[in-house]
Amino acid sequence: MKQLPDDMLRQFWQDSKKEAPEGFSDFIMQNLPQHSPLSEALKKPLLSPGIAASLAGLLVVLALLLYNLKGSGQSSSGWYLTMQQWLDSSLSWLGSSPATLPTIGAFSVAIVLLIVLDRLLKRMLNRMEG
């Protein structure tokens, strides 16, 4: 494109510049949300669905493993014996202090509830922010 047309267009553009309407900034300031902008970190859930699913999967695998160890006694490999010992000592410890198991159960349920509540709150927050 030649220089002259561009100069001409620029001139047209300059002449058509407009100013924002009177009281524009006042209107914006009056209509801002009452809270200050929230940081993105605050709006993100504590656990992403991927991490939550991985943790749940890991727990299920561990539970199944323990269940199998308790039920069978054929293998004599090193890792199996270590796990068996660990399981036996854990069971005896749980048996000696009867309040531990319900406490761990209640703690786990509370964590799951907190994660669910956190996700619900963050979703509400994001919806409010538009």
Binding site: I28, N31, L32, P33, P37, L38, S39, E40, L42, K43, E129, G130
Partner: peptide, 8 residues
């Protein structure tokens, strides 16, 4: 207004 909301 949108910019203010997502300034974070």
């Amino acid at each position: 207004i949108k910019v203010y909301q997502v300034l974070g």
